[in-house]
Design a protein around this nucleic acid. Structure first.
Length: 175
DNA sequence: ACGATGATGAAC
DNA sequence: TTCATCATCGTA
């Protein structure tokens, strides 16, 4: 039995959602087929005060969906090559999102979007069946003891404090 | 260790 | 309008 995750799930503290997103399934529909892969690695970007977050310098054309309601995709293009897939969390007006860094069999945020053909076309759209890209709870529970937390990757610019925050969550058996 | 490759945002 | 930077990855 599987349940589609909605605003109800994402409209909570970002770190809580990040931890609970491990073990859930990212589902992408292509034609008649649905591909479901378990989420194994994520990173939280939490609030305008988070110096590693795009939202730290205020709202811009790129990051505006982070400031909106939760349960919405935030996809941006970086390094001239890669789309990064995020899901917006927290209440409207509070800029936060979770970067999906890895799913079963695909490690790395750039590889993930490339392999699943996820582009900025879904930016600002709801994570739902209608969009063709969503999350499901398929009953798998990841125990706290089976989760590793580390600093986030590639955020040296955030300064010593924020670069070291343990906002990256990985399923131990997938690290 | 480094280059690919282009959008972004801040400075000018 | 220019310019440094970038929530990365493949090749070496």
């Amino acid at each position: 039995m599987s349940k589609i995750l909605t605003n109800r799930f994402f409209n909570r503290p970002t770190l809580t959602v990040a931890r609970e997103l491990l073990g859930k399934f990212l589902v992408v529909r292509r034609g008649k087929k649905e591909i479901a892969l378990m989420v194994t690695e994520v990173e939280a970007y939490d609030g305008h005060y988070d110096k590693a977050s795009h939202a730290h310098r205020g709202e811009t054309a790129r990051n505006k969906v982070m400031f909106g309601g939760s349960g919405v995709w935030y996809v941006y293009f970086v390094y001239g090559m890669y789309n990064m897939l995020n899901i917006v969390t927290g209440r409207e007006g509070f800029p936060a999102a979770i970067l999906i860094r890895g799913v079963e069999g695909v490690v790395g945020p750039g590889r993930l979007t490339k392999k699943l053909k996820i582009t900025r076309a879904v930016n600002g759209k709801e994570a739902s069946r209608k969009t063709g890209l969503w999350f499901e709870d398929r009953g798998i529970q990841i125990k706290k003891a089976d989760i590793v937390r580390t600093p986030r990757v590639g955020v040296h610019y955030a300064g010593p404090v924020w670069a070291k925050k343990p906002y990256r969550f990985i399923i131990k058996s997938h690290q």
